[in-house]
Design a protein around this nucleic acid. Structure first.
Lengths: 250, 250
DNA sequence: CGGGAACTTGATCTCGGTCAATATTGGTGG
DNA sequence: CCACCAATATTGACCGAGATCAAGTTCCCG
């Protein structure tokens, strides 16, 4: 690990999502607080010492909704889908969390609000809940980073309300592809084609569609020569402008 | 105004939304920080002195998305709808904000992310953005309350993703009614019938439906004797259990 | 290779969208 | 206070995007 001071981004807590880019720090209350200073190695070491590295295989659950919150997880490898399931089995994937993201909050009465399923092999640093909260309490720059992360998740969630509420099936799929490419960009450096790590069924549950409709939308985008399908899980973007136009939302 | 110490709820920043109820303070990082102490009158006075009371007529906009953020507004009267509009005119209402709510954040590069329209006469205390941020910086209990508010908005937004993505039209309308009744409960003390202050078109844009479908769902719920329609904007719940069952989501 | 899971494609159905009349209703002025 | 009118809501008829049902096909992984 590098010596010296480490920015909040090292925690992935203020990781930029989507094309919107990071909100200016000016908008973060902690900024005017003067508390958005970078974490120092000592704190970093302390926090890391608190948590144990854990590992999950593809399709394993990190936790399920309504389970008591024992730990929070900072993902260090892989992709996780957070979802809600209705009594009759309908499922909505409400968030995609990848390297740098902190999973397991907000909670609801001390229980996980969502289920979190590993879409790939996943590794994460686990923090025992009460000790993590206490640590956040003692290090206000972390509290600030957490608040900023929550705010970005809110922006993302409202964007997805618009996608699901207003866009047609092909538009939603186009939006999903752009989101994934941006989300994976940091780890992937923009290489093409890109493995999505989502089955058609999972994409469908994220976009409020059926897997058949998702499949047809992929085929349509392929026929329009906007994307290329490589194998069953990988996609290359052939015409980014067209794709962005189809996706409609920022 | 009462003397003595005033809880965060006096700010409406941690106002309980929906049936889920308030998250336990234990889950708020600020709690373990020991910064969730109530505001004192002096601070309250200071903050209020900073802001001017403003007024909007029904259908006026408090602000529009992409306008530079000049002020944040704490609503003291009325109901506001926050929305996003696509280039082709499709609109998604992404949030309903009423007395106690703070409007105008998060922003996006110093510009409002949503438009905010008054659904009724609205009064709000306006806080100049930079001064508000500075004040939040000096009073960490307020920063904590803000973070908690953001977290609750996130919970609400993910719930709405599920409603829009998974529920059928009548289920969505049932969910909307329950949400409104809970949202207005504090001001209304549960009186029946309740004025929604939403046109069918606005409900449609909130639920990702058309106004005709919303109207048909109302009629269907009326025919099932689950609700009664009073005038054009008021509703009484005749069978709360049925309505909750139909709504499916928490 | 072989088998099973995931994907694609086709046929058909259905819910909600669209288009088009009415019907209410609440606000306004006589 | 009532009559009128514009705005909003309701209802009906029809249409179509996406869901459902049902084969096939591809692809991965052992």
């Amino acid at each position: 690990m590098k010596s010296g001071r480490i920015g909040l981004n090292a925690w992935g807590l203020s990781q930029a999502h989507g094309g919107a880019g990071k909100l200016p720090c000016d908008s973060c209350p902690g900024r005017s607080l003067g508390i958005c200073r970078p974490l120092e190695d000592q704190r970093l070491a302390h926090l890391l010492a608190m948590g144990g590295q854990r590992h999950w295989a593809k399709r394993e659950f990190l936790y399920r909704s309504d389970d008591p919150v024992q730990a929070l997880y900072k993902i260090t490898k892989g992709v996780v889908a957070e979802s809600r399931v209705l009594d009759d089995g309908r499922r909505q994937i409400v968030g995609i969390r990848t390297v740098g993201a902190l999973c397991g909050y907000p909670d609801h009465g001390g229980r996980y609000l969502f289920s979190a399923e590993a879409l790939t092999e996943v590794e994460a640093c686990s923090f025992e809940r009460t000790r993590f909260n206490a640590f956040v309490g003692r290090h206000i720059d972390l509290a600030c980073a957490l608040a900023e992360d929550t705010s970005e998740r809110l922006v993302r969630a409202t964007e997805n309300m618009t996608v699901i509420g207003q866009l047609r099936s092909m538009e939603r799929v186009a939006h999903f592809l752009i989101e994934i490419f941006e989300l994976y960009a940091t780890q992937n450096a923009g290489a093409q084609p890109l493995a999505l790590h989502f089955t058609r069924h999972e994409i469908a549950d994220y976009l409020g569609l059926t897997l058949e409709t998702v499949s047809r939308s992929f085929s349509k985008l392929r026929d329009l020569e906007v994307i290329a399908l490589v194998g069953v899980d990988s996609v290359a973007i052939l015409n980014e402008k067209r794709l962005t136009d189809i996706a409609k939302v920022s």
